[in-house]
């Protein structure tokens, strides 16, 4: 993918944002007693996981995620800047693979990454090592071999 723009190293903002993500995971545990895994929350919000008492807060959570750029703009004065790959067939394939993979693997960067590692789960550590590994190899192949 032709997107090798250099991005600025932002340790302070990234650490601060990471702490917010961690706080949200703690809120979900304190309030609902659940793991804040976005792939699972999204499946729950879509009704792909049996409804029950969790469907409603999960829909609320997804709405909150969608509202975040606007909340950020209220505070920062501008919508967040981003550079999204423009190869649309590749993005469609990537989305399909990410959705399928996180559903089969029971989690993504949030559920296995943040929450699973925070719980010191060996299963999540194996998942994180696997997806970090294949992601790094994928970027290497796409940027440096092809």
């Amino acid at each position: 993918m032709e997107l090798d723009t250099v991005t600025a190293f932002t340790p302070v903002a990234s650490l601060a944002g990471g702490i917010l993500i961690g706080l949200s995971a703690v809120m979900v545990m304190a309030i609902f007693g659940r793991i804040a895994g976005i792939s699972g929350i999204t499946r729950g919000a879509l009704g792909a996981i049996t409804g029950g008492p969790d469907a409603r807060w999960r829909i609320g959570f997804v709405v909150g995620l969608l509202a975040a750029p606007f909340a950020y703009a209220l505070w920062a004065g501008d919508l967040p800047a981003q550079t999204v790959p423009g190869n649309l067939p590749a993005m469609a394939a990537a989305g399909l693979i990410v959705g399928t993979g996180t559903a089969i693997g029971s989690g993504c960067t949030s559920g296995h990454g943040v929450c699973g590692l925070a719980r010191l789960s060996p299963r999540s550590l194996a998942a994180v090592a696997t997806f970090m590994g294949t992601a790094i190899v994928t970027v290497f192949v796409l940027r440096h071999l092809i």
């Binding site: 590749a90 996180t102 997806f131 294949t134 992601a135």
Partner: peptide, 12 residues
């Protein structure tokens, strides 16, 4: 699943 997810994450 994790390997697939990493592949898609690395593409998109």
């Amino acid at each position: 699943g994790a390997a697939l997810f990493g592949l898609g994450w690395g593409i998109g």
